[in-house]
Design a protein around this nucleic acid. Structure first.
Lengths: 245, 245
DNA sequence: GACCTTATGTGTGCTACCGCACAGATGGGA
DNA sequence: TCCCATCTGTGCGGTAGCACACATAAGGTC
């Protein structure tokens, strides 16, 4: 989405600009933030924050994906949205909440940069481009949450699985995902058997192939055909919001 | 939620401060805005905005309720959230979007104040209390959208109807709603017959009574018992966000 | 290479909700 | 007052997803 301009190969394979939000900042802003950005591994299943917990850091994923979900009293949960290299986890901080009733965990392991809450608040309150970037991202997030909610109401598990796979591919940059059906199921808030069935259908159609904790996408257009409109809407809207800036 | 301080009875029964967001502004801010606030009737079924449309005004409902919903390709729709005297319609404006993929219509008629987009943007960009109020409201909205999405996934029609009724009561200030089952159904994105069944259940339990387009709530605690947790979560979170300010 | 944890496949009811079809009731307007 | 558009009640068959119960398979560990 954001073309990363050619630059001298860095010694570490990790750079803050791998995150599109950070990449969208002015060079001077990013330079000022850089010393405060701490590269952290995000491990499978790691809990980033729990409902009601005070947020100490915000996270800018690069290769990892963080899932925001609400856990119901019954124990079942539902993903609200996921955040990868296209966003930041912890918007409640600058929106004036400090905390939220939802949880954040890591379904796809990788890395990300974290930043102290205090620093982010300062930057946000300074106004300017950083504020605009963060607000615009929040708007995109709202669109995704909206669409997920509507999708929950009307679309089949197979369609939702396609949507989830496509969004996850976009964020991971790889065509192989390391994740079990069990975890996908709890992420989407459906039964594991439902995912087994839907994934089997996709595999028989030749669009994916999977083995014990690994899913390979063989034919992406096939997934797009079988997905509901929700993927395209989110994709389009997110792209649109990055246009002028 | 916001105790309206005693004041000399105005000649018109309508005042901007009936909307909690406007009431939360500093007196001088509200005084500056007042001449630009246009009182408008919001009629049943009126379309406030359509997906992709450029927003010309933002709306601060007082007695009306505006429903934000997404209409799918299939024609079926799902309510994302509703806005009454507790909020404002058109947050995309100051979030940097100018438009959204969702629709806004009026399921409960009444009145509201509208304000030109340009004016709101100016005020928002001025920072200060207005900005903080609007951002905090957006955060509350996100919570509601989140909860609605999770509710769509896991809860029964009857539970969702209870949630919807309770939230609508809170916003309308009356214990009688003028709305048909048909409209509730399309708002929630379920079949009309599903609402008939759920409403019948509530009526037999003695919690509501209804006749052709009118619903009276007889026993609110009963609704709270039958509602899912979602109502309480939203209520609590919205209240929390108004605390310190 | 054997073992054992963990992931995946499958079957059998069961329930909630849907789509459709139509009957009955109600209340505003001519 | 009557009429008729509109709202509400109800039944029937179909389907998606759930809960539970196992069987099987894969792959890491010792």
């Amino acid at each position: 989405m954001n073309s990363l301009s050619p630059s001298p190969a860095p010694s570490s394979p990790h750079r803050p600009s791998q995150n599109h939000l950070l990449a969208a900042l002015a060079a001077e802003d990013l330079a000022r933030l850089a010393p405060q950005l701490e590269l952290v591994p995000l491990r499978l299943g790691q809990v980033i924050y729990q409902p009601g917990e005070h947020l100490r850091h915000v996270y800018f994923p690069t290769t990892a994906i963080i899932s925001l979900h609400y856990v119901m009293a019954s124990g079942s949960s539902a993903e609200i949205t996921a955040v990868g290299n296209d966003g930041v986890v912890g918007i409640a901080l600058f929106m004036g909440g400090d905390t939220t009733p939802s949880s954040a965990t890591v379904p796809i392991a990788g890395h990300g940069y974290r930043l102290e809450s205090r620093v982010l608040k300062q930057e946000f309150n300074g106004g300017g481009l950083i504020q605009r970037v963060l607000l615009r991202y929040t708007q995109a997030l709202m669109t995704q949450v909206t669409q997920t909610g509507a999708c929950n109401r009307h679309h089949s598990i197979a369609q939702q699985l396609c949507r989830w796979l496509l969004l996850t591919l976009d964020r991971s940059g790889s065509d192989e995902l390391v994740i079990t059906q069990e975890l996908i199921a709890s992420t989407l808030g459906v039964r594991r058997e439902g995912i087994t069935e839907a994934a089997g259908k996709l595999q028989r159609a030749g669009h994916i192939s999977y083995r014990r904790g690994h899913i390979s996408v063989l034919h992406r257009p096939g997934l797009e055909t079988m997905a509901c409109e929700c993927y395209a809407v989110v994709r389009k809207e997110v792209d649109r919001l990055w246009q002028p800036l």
